[in-house]
Design a protein around this nucleic acid. Structure first.
Lengths: 176, 176
DNA sequence: CGACCCTATGCAACGAGTTGCATGCCGATG
DNA sequence: CATCGGCATGCAACTCGTTGCATAGGGTCG
């Protein structure tokens, strides 16, 4: 599984410590890729062992020292190779879809509540993405390279959330 | 992870053997939820042990006997309870999104090829979903209960694939 | 009839992801 | 000053998912 590669991309964008990565993954990146700090620490240690990364400790004032990782030459090679490989798209894997499909085997009113809660969540995410979009990329036509790609991935998040909102809204209307 | 519950829904719709479920999961259901036969066999055995299912062997002509599972009372209780619980939506977990974001750290032309391949795949899925839609639900307004839910989930698949196609198309156009 | 594929089930081993907990230091709050 | 929360890292145990392989019967094609 390419948590390795997601971390390589994140570290290629900017070197960071384990906890900083955990924060990034629960913010901007994390809307597209989740990971706990455990997983991140373990994976960083392994990639360091394998020579994909180099690390050094950084002393801080008023905080414990942190271990900052950056991508080594070997890591850049691994990343470039992986980027050129075909990506197999895996399906939704969504609890909610299973619940919607199975609603007639339980209390339908309760399932509709679950769907309403999920819809509110997706609305909130969509609003947050739009906020990030206007804050970070007010003028998309001027972007290039890394920033353009980041912008386009955020754009994908918006399209996905739009689709979720449309879907759940349709579901609720059909059961109104 | 709710492979358990996905199987309960599938078996509540219609009792089946392990292999039949594996086939269903690689066809209609599998577009929204993938599972290998291994996983299915193991999970069925555990659910049977736990009393969620009852099973009996069915002799066949010209084929080995199969073990058909159906949902027991306990399984129906578990399913109804689970259906009423809130569902936490987890994010994309998409290799492709990571590759698009990291494209500037590799050979961009190759990444664009990867994206083109994925786009073709999503186009194909979309066409297949539309085919299933017109074949199985030619007149959606007349549906009710289970069939209506199945229809709405397929509809969700179409909306998701639409979003993917739009996203990848935008990405390719931005890098044209 | 031998090779091969399909049905049908399953074991074993591994890798990935989750959960709970532990450590140690610092700063702030009461 | 004692406690609590945040920073920073990590161990251990568990579950979930994947991969490779095994078995055993039957059908088909050259």
């Amino acid at each position: 599984m390419p948590l390795d590669h997601a971390l390589l991309v994140a570290l290629a964008e900017r070197p960071a410590s384990g906890l900083e990565l955990a924060h990034r993954f629960s913010r901007s990146i994390g809307y597209f890729w989740s990971a706990t700090h455990q997983q991140i620490y373990r994976t960083l240690a392994r990639m360091d062992d394998d020579g994909w990364l180099v690390s050094h400790t950084v002393e801080q004032q008023g905080k414990p020292a942190k271990r900052v990782y950056e991508v080594a030459d070997e890591g850049h090679r691994v990343l470039a190779t992986w980027l050129a490989e075909p990506a197999d798209p895996h399906p939704l894997r969504s609890d909610l879809a299973v619940k919607m499909r199975g609603a007639s085997f339980g209390d339908r009113a309760q399932v509709l509540d679950v769907v309403r809660t999920a819809l509110a969540e997706h609305h909130a995410r969509l609003a947050h993405y739009r906020y990030l979009m206007s804050r970070d990329y007010p003028d998309p036509s001027t972007l290039s390279g890394l920033e353009r790609d980041q912008h386009l991935v955020l754009r994908g998040g918006i399209l996905m959330e739009d689709a979720w909102v449309a879907w759940l809204t349709e579901y609720l209307e059909a059961h109104a």
